[in-house]
Amino acid sequence: MKKKTIASPIGPLAIYEDDKCIVEIKFDEETKANDTSELLDACEQQLSEYFKGERSEFSLPVELRGTDFQKQVWTELRKIPYGKTISYSELAIRLGDIKTIRAAGSANGKNKLPILIPCHRVIGKNGSLVGFAGGLYTKKWLLQREGAIPGEQIDLFPKS
């Protein structure tokens, strides 16, 4: 497996490549060992364009590593348009059964390809920003970059 750590506006990101596919992106992981490959360089370039607001979709080969249900959830996440959000209940409905809301939320949280597979676009039904591996500040930053939420007008922990 190859690994490259890049700087980003949300902190260091470690990108992992295996078998000519991007398989994982981790937040806040710095290392001195950096591999090089065309794919890792392409991923770095596309992420850089995304962070600058110049890219809204990614065209990288990825491999989803998880259970069949997790893969189903992650495939559904890819359908959420740039600049839009859905609730966890909406995600469960899109999967065909509102009763899967907890399982869908769990699978969302186990997404190993954040940003590329936009798990940050799933929010609480009341509009709250809940759960994100990169932290709520990062989730807020990503959603603001995409224009999905207004600048300073959203409360991270609204009272319901």
Rank of each mutant, 00 (worst) to 15 (best):
L39R: 13
S8G: 06
Q46N: 14
E57K: 11
V23I: 15
T67C: 07
G96W: 05
F51P: 09
F51T: 09
A14K: 12
G83V: 06
L91R: 01
E49T: 00
L116S: 02
Q72D: 10
L39H: 12
T36R: 14
E63D: 11
F69K: 03
E30F: 09
D35I: 03
F51Y: 13
N108T: 14
R102L: 13
D97I: 07
R78N: 09
E44I: 10
T100G: 01
V122R: 12
P118Y: 10
K20Y: 06
L13G: 02
Y82D: 02
N34C: 12
E49F: 03
K20M: 05
K4P: 11
L13E: 06
E90I: 02
Y50W: 01
T75P: 00
K32W: 14
G53H: 08
E29A: 10
D18W: 07
E24K: 14
S106W: 07
E76Y: 09
G83N: 08
L47Y: 04
T85Y: 07
G11K: 06
I22A: 01
L60V: 02
H120R: 07
Q72V: 02
Y50M: 04
G105I: 04
Q46W: 12
K79M: 05
A14M: 14
K110L: 07
E49K: 08
K52R: 15
V62C: 13
K84R: 09
P118G: 13
A7N: 02
D19C: 14
K4C: 12
E49C: 05
L95W: 06
I115C: 07
T75W: 04
E76C: 12
E44L: 15
D68Q: 15
D18G: 13
S87M: 06
K71L: 02
Y50T: 02
C21I: 02
A92P: 06
G109S: 00
E76L: 11
G66H: 05
S87D: 08
W74R: 00
L64E: 09
E63M: 09
G53N: 12
L64F: 05
N108K: 11
I25R: 03
F69I: 01
A103N: 12
K125T: 15
P114S: 11
A14T: 14
Q45V: 01
V122G: 13
S59E: 15
A14Q: 14
A42Y: 06
I22T: 04
K84Y: 03
T67Q: 05
G83R: 10
E29K: 13
R94F: 12
P9T: 09
Q70V: 01
L40D: 07
D18P: 06
R55N: 05
Y50Q: 02
I80H: 02
P81D: 12
